[in-house]
Design a protein around this nucleic acid. Structure first.
Lengths: 212, 212, 212, 212
DNA sequence: GATGAATGAGTGTTCATTCAT
DNA sequence: CATGAATGAACACTCATTCAT
């Protein structure tokens, strides 16, 4: 049987997809969205403003993110990535204490930390009502908790801390403290800048680390 | 300074204002607003829904609160009042430890705590962009910090805690931790219920209390 | 017991409703909508155009008609009213034949009949997919059928027609013929004007009326 | 004149066009469009949905039909073809009466007749505003009228009917009745199923056929 | 004081269509 | 030819707020 000349695979017809261009556009849009959300917040940023800021047409934005909420979802994953990097920074330090201090400085010394906190507030608020965002934030939280808990277990094995609190609980509490501090940065609570060092100490003492 | 628009000076002619009736209406509207915000959040609650929930006409609402944001302002002051009562509860306990545990149970055992946290998130988000709300939240924060710091100083005088952290800083950190936990309640972080007890312990150890 | 002075009935507080003004506005909007739909059709008429044509703001339109479809619903009822008047005209004629001829002339001689038919087509198309409109059109149809069937029964009693077709079926068929003719007016079928007289004859013969 | 854009003249250089492949694609797209229009109507069917249903890219669709309206045009001609076949069926019957009854059963017994009528309504509505569609529908109407008129003339010659109505007028009225019945199927008029038989009788009596 | 009526300025999202590969 | 990418122009509907009674 002579096989009829098959077309060169039907999925190869037409214009091929360029994954790099797609990724670049995605990033471009996401950066625009982030700038808008930082500046005006989630609800105050219209899709028109976002796409203008990103240098894209509104309709094009919708081809990459079918919903305004999907922008938030993507930002959550973005931020998770950089947050995990911060934890990796802590892990690379010789002691937990030094690691925490380094991370603390990296975070709170950042001039844009108040902005980031505002964005985090927007995300959390959205997460508190929109199921899709809830799920994304929960998943991110889970990974953060796991990463920090691993750190604490290592420190415990090293005899660095004497935590009678379970590692995962401690991790969640550290994250809580960080978020709470972020809230205070977000509304410029009086004297909030002084808290960054105090918070590291607070955490270490709570973990039973030897301080002096 | 913030909430209900002051009625015209009573020395004027015309129908004399009835301050009690005015206060009652204010309460009525505020309660409706709170229910709406709890249920749907700040941005998703229209003034129409709020006034319907309160059993008032929209125009009437505007005679008591000239702006939607003014509702938030008033709620902030409401909540400050009940939060200060919670601190008074701690103060009445024989030891700081027992006080904190009582407060913790009072807060987290409340079935509606997740809702309250969502509302708090809404308020903080609004505070992060709207100057008037920023001011109100900052003022409330100031009072909360002062009240808790006083508690800590007393506990220190009693030898109950050995805090090397300044009382005001410690107070701010305790509040931060509470807000951060609220965030986790708001998006139903996995295992968040287990954190309520752990958080009290966390705080006490950070303060250098003897846990036994 | 001295009854406390009751307020003058709570429903009487505030600005009283003016039913006439409301009815006038409703008419004003409906007329604007009709003109728009006649000119451009239902889907091509935006709510902005409709309200502009009616001399009302868009938001105001939505206070009277909560949905664009509700405009259609109201138009259906409007048209039902005038259609029933046309049937009443037939009923007032001495014989069915004269009545039908009068009605036929009144309809088809109207210069705007093609426009009306276009509108009718829009309504029917909408009725074919939108449940609310379906229901309205069906209800109107039911009333039209009943009215015409009554006419036919009277004519039968008078010995004017010898219909072996049940009155309601005959009524529905007459309406069908009318709608079908309307379609042809709508797209200006070649020679459609000549059909108006022929259709009356067609109907009368189908009903078994003595013609010559 | 209407449907698929003519391929570039075959005498040109470059890849030679394959008329069969082109015709197949045209069919494929048209079938998808028909299914979409049947299911959701003309305005509610986006070109994206249509091309997805047809299994083609949107851009490809536009290479065969330069406008969404052109799809309607092509469908009109498709339907004309099958309608003429139905008339041929009538012509093959020994008597007009039997032919009409056969056709009537073929039409109304079809379970999808309501859907077809909805589609017809869409087409007529579009024809009432879009010149190109107007022309197509008028041309189709002309052919239908001619075909039916021929039938009636033959029946008249056979002494089967005694129509004092001109054949073309009678033909147009028969088509009108059919369209009007279709409208009623489209919105599921109460009791519409019973009308199919009654309509044949109605027509025959109007044409002066002896019913016995 | 309290209400019904009114509105300008948006809101997120969709669509028919074109262009580049 | 066939496809993916891009877009301008709309669209139905909403909202916080003001005005008149």
């Amino acid at each position: 049987m002579s096989a009829p000349a098959a077309p060169p695979s039907p999925s190869r017809r037409g214009r091929p997809v360029d994954p790099e261009a797609r990724a670049a556009r995605t990033r471009q849009i996401l950066d625009g969205a982030r700038r808008c959300f930082l500046r005006k917040g989630f609800h105050a940023s219209s899709t028109a403003e976002i796409s203008a800021e990103a240098g894209v047409s509104v309709a094009n934005l919708y081809q990459y993110f079918p919903t305004k909420d999907d922008l938030v979802l993507a930002l959550v994953e973005d931020d998770l990535r950089s947050d995990l990097e911060l934890i990796a920074l802590v892990a690379r330090a010789p002691t937990l204490r030094e690691g925490l201090q380094a991370a603390s400085h990296a975070m709170y010394a950042d001039a844009g930390f108040a902005d980031l906190s505002r964005l985090r507030l927007d995300v959390l608020t959205e997460a508190s009502r929109t199921p899709a965002v809830t799920a994304a934030v929960r998943a991110a939280e889970e990974k953060m908790v796991a990463a920090i808990a691993a750190l604490l277990e290592r420190a415990h094995a090293n005899g660095e801390i004497d935590s009678r609190i379970a590692p995962r609980a401690a991790a969640a509490l550290i994250l809580s403290l960080t978020d709470g501090l972020g809230c205070r940065f977000a509304f410029h609570a009086p004297g909030v800048e002084a808290l960054s060092d105090a918070s590291t100490l607070f955490i270490l003492r709570a973990l039973g680390a030897r301080i002096n």
